[in-house]
């Protein structure tokens, strides 16, 4: 049984233009999948339909055998604890410390009062430090996030997602604001998470070469439609040109 099933998914923001149309794919547990496509193709929208950060207009998203579109508030919260999310701009609370930001990942499991009074158990705190250590930023635990570099902030973002103990992690262009070195560090960590912890990863990427290097499988999105879906090594030049259009392709490789 696949972990995630997307069936005939369609999305309209304004009632006219279809940002996504008839998107179908399945993801097995443990897969490392990358979604590529030009700007405006609908990559971010697709990810946000999976944890219903945007409402689904047509079709179905089935996660772990449950229909995401039909979920009520409480079930939706439970779904979101199972799905971590990583953002291009890290989306941390900049004035708070690293450790506080990591523990935010536990809110999905807390009652309102527990969360408001920051009642975290010893195990949760230990786990937070374990993860920070794993991502090599334990020494910064008590620093404010706005004092960290972009690459370090993204690692905090990854810790916040991991402490949720998710089955799936959605990454919306996790390296688009980073230099090549930090990009490599982040991609290596994501790959490590997927192979060591068996967490499924869906990664939106701008860089085709990065997608080919890290992902087992690539989905190519163009104007809201899937135009390629297959193993990374089968993504050839002509398909890349088809996804991006020839002119843009030249811009990207330079």
């Amino acid at each position: 049984m696949p972990l995630l099933k997307v069936e005939g998914l369609g999305k309209l923001y304004d009632g006219e233009t279809k940002v996504l149309r008839d998107v179908n794919f399945e993801v097995e547990a443990g897969e490392f999948l990358s979604i590529i496509g030009p700007s405006g193709a609908g990559k971010s929208t697709l990810l946000r339909c999976i944890n219903r950060m945007v409402e689904i207009s047509e079709g179905k998203v089935i996660f772990d055998d449950l229909d995401v579109g039909e979920m009520r508030k409480k079930e939706l919260r439970k779904l979101r604890t199972n799905i971590g999310m990583i953002f291009q701009h890290y989306n941390l609370v900049p004035r708070l410390t690293v450790i506080e930001n990591v523990l935010h990942g536990r809110f999905g499991y807390k009652s309102t009062l527990q969360g408001v009074f920051a009642r975290f158990t010893e195990e949760e705190k230990e786990r937070a430090f374990f993860l920070l250590d794993k991502l090599g930023i334990a020494e910064h635990a008590y620093k404010r996030c706005d004092q960290l570099s972009g690459g370090q902030q993204q690692r905090v973002g990854i810790c916040r997602a991991l402490i949720q103990e998710p089955k799936l992690i959605l990454c919306d262009e996790p390296i688009a604001s980073l230099d090549p070195n930090s990009s490599k560090v982040i991609m290596d960590y994501l790959k490590q998470i997927s192979t060591e912890m068996g967490i499924t990863c869906l990664v939106n990427l701008h860089q085709v070469d990065v997608a080919k290097e890290y992902a087992d499988r690539i989905i190519g999105l163009k104007k809201g439609e899937i135009v390629f879906d297959g193993p990374s090594k089968l993504l050839y030049e002509d398909q890349i040109e088809n996804i991006y259009g020839i002119e843009t392709r030249e811009l990207i490789t330079v």
Binding site: R80, I83, G84, F87, L92, V93, E100, F107, G115, V116
Partner: peptide
């Protein structure tokens, strides 16, 4: 905006988000 989006995606409730992200920030 960005941290509210992130916390909503973790399954945090409205009061978690307001008290632990919006107000401190």
């Amino acid at each position: 905006q960005s941290s509210v989006e992130a916390l909503t995606a973790t399954g945090a409730t409205y009061f978690h988000i307001v008290s632990k992200a919006v107000i401190p920030q």
